[in-house]
Amino acid sequence: MAQERKPVTTVKLQKMKASNEPIAMVTAYDFLSARLADEAGVDMILVGDSLGNVIQGQESTLPVTLDEIIYHTKMVTRAVKSAFVIADMPFMTYHGSLDHTLHNAGRIMREGLAKGIKLEGGEELAPAVKALTLAGVPVIGHLGLTPQSVHVIGGYRVQGKNSEQARKMLKDAKALQEAGAIAVVLELITEELAEWITNQLSIPTIGIGAGASCDGQVLVFHDMLAYDPDDRRKKFVKVYAEVGRAIRDGFGDYVNDVKSRKFPSESHGFKGDNEVLQYLYGSTLK
């Protein structure tokens, strides 16, 4: 029997950065996917607002609500024994007053039982990060392609391709670190910039489409397992299993068996005893 892993903590994540041990992170949105990820040895699980895209079928993450994040976080934390569970703060739930931000983060921690929260943005969010940290909420930042700002940045494009953007992103990362962030997600930025930022920070960087120099990597559950067999493959995603095709084939086989009366067979049914048959039908059935 495999030895049970100790829970991943903020201290453990910092030690992984210091010892150059890569951090493996995935998204999960329900009990079973979280349990499987945890049992596989994933270090961190993100209950991402990407659920808007992959669970709800939305075009962006913007429609996801705080109640929906809490609902899915409850399912994930109920399943996880070791991984460090982080939940996204949805669009416009952390851009008002500090009281507003603290209240919303508190709900995620208290009701969803998350270990921390993630928010998108840079230096402008430093006061919120500091306030959350002082309140006992571990915070992960998110820079580069920030999906909640997709309409501002002009679509899903690689970020940090010029010197101005690069300098701004490093400044943002340092501001988040100084405010108390425990890690920073770097999404869809150039490999050179990701390496530069990673080397400048004392907290871990978690990359997605940011190359191999980050301290860790994160992928969306549905992307890495090809849950949608017809989805266009993203360049930065490695597919580890063709789950969607297997599920669709399984449904197809089931439909064919039902239509041809191959299912259920005799082995899938239950027989009553003669007393019950006599009561129901007035005679036993052969």
Rank of each mutant, 00 (worst) to 15 (best):
Q177G: 07
G141M: 08
L113F: 14
M224P: 05
E120D: 08
T146W: 02
A131D: 01
K130N: 03
Y227I: 04
V239W: 01
N199T: 01
E195A: 15
Y227A: 09
R232Y: 00
L143I: 01
E242H: 11
E124T: 14
E120R: 10
G211K: 10
G121T: 10
F236I: 08
Y227H: 03
I182F: 06
G216M: 14
S202F: 07
E191T: 15
E242V: 02
G154T: 09
H222I: 08
A183P: 05
G207C: 07
E123K: 14
T205Y: 01
V237T: 12
M224H: 04
F236V: 06
L143Q: 00
P147F: 11
Q148V: 12
Y227M: 11
R157M: 05
T198F: 00
C214K: 13
L193D: 13
P147E: 11
G155T: 12
D223W: 07
V129H: 02
E111R: 11
K238I: 04
H222Q: 14
K118F: 02
R157V: 14
V139K: 11
V184S: 03
R233E: 03
E195Y: 06
R232G: 01
K161F: 00
A183K: 04
S149G: 08
V185Q: 04
N199C: 02
L143K: 00
K171L: 13
E111W: 11
E123N: 13
A183N: 05
